[in-house]
Design a protein around this nucleic acid. Structure first.
Lengths: 126, 126
DNA sequence: CGGGCTGTATCAACCTCATAATACAATAAT
DNA sequence: ATTATTGTATTATGAGGTTGATACAGCCCG
């Protein structure tokens, strides 16, 4: 099933984020083998070049490792993985606070607002 | 001073968001006159065409109104403004929950994490 | 009336991103 | 050894976004 990608934002960047999430959330376990560029490109319904670009980008962070012609694997450094996960969570929290502060909320108000929204599901528009 | 814009995302879209925030946060009061396309483009260090595109986009939401050749003003419909503000806040909350759930956190855990991050300032990397 | 402002429209040039179609070297499997 | 699969690279093409330079119509002010 093709991955859901928003437009108005580079696809390869979205692929990077998505793969990163799949790794830190354990969908691709530490030391596990990753699908090939072509295979994953087919799954995501994306051009192999684009997936290749995403992989190359993701490799700089050290989360995945290229093994010559044997494919790619997830790093076994669980410390690095946990760190990435924490960093992503922090980034989400910071983004939330920044967005709410831009709207005029204090951090405390933003936290309260989140509690209030915790129950309700996704946005019922209008 | 030129506005801070991230790349990897259309400038006009960022301008739309930023203007929207300035309106709902009261930086541009209801019924108040907006700077001209050219003027604001100069301030933001952006091409007038791009700012024009942002204005045109923003106008569909009803937040701003074009007065022939007399420039643009913010709507006086404060109800609409408050509604937009609430919707933006909800969107931030939903985005936060969605991001955290993608990482494997429950909504409750996500809320707790936010509380914990409330004190610490922006990300101290590493 | 004339000059300066407004929003709006158009055109060409450039860049990035994405796709498609290949191609190649290296390795694993048969 | 041959085949298939791996990552990687190249080229061309097209779409979308951004800029720059212009241009025009309408309106307000001096």
């Amino acid at each position: 099933m093709a991955w859901v990608l928003e437009d108005g934002r580079p696809i390869y960047a979205q692929l990077v984020e998505r793969l990163q999430v799949q790794i830190v959330s354990g969908a691709y376990p530490p030391g596990g083998k990753l699908p090939s560029v072509r295979e994953l490109a087919a799954v995501a319904a994306v051009n192999p070049n684009t997936m290749q670009k995403a992989f190359a980008e993701l490799e700089k962070s050290g989360l995945i490792i290229t093994q010559g012609t044997n494919g790619r694997v997830v790093t076994e450094d669980e410390r690095l993985i946990r760190g990435s996960k924490r960093r992503l969570a922090r980034r989400h929290a910071d983004a939330y606070f920044a967005g709410m502060e831009g709207l005029g909320y204090t951090r405390a108000q933003a936290a309260d607002f989140l509690r209030a929204a915790e129950g309700k599901g996704e946005a019922e528009d209008e």
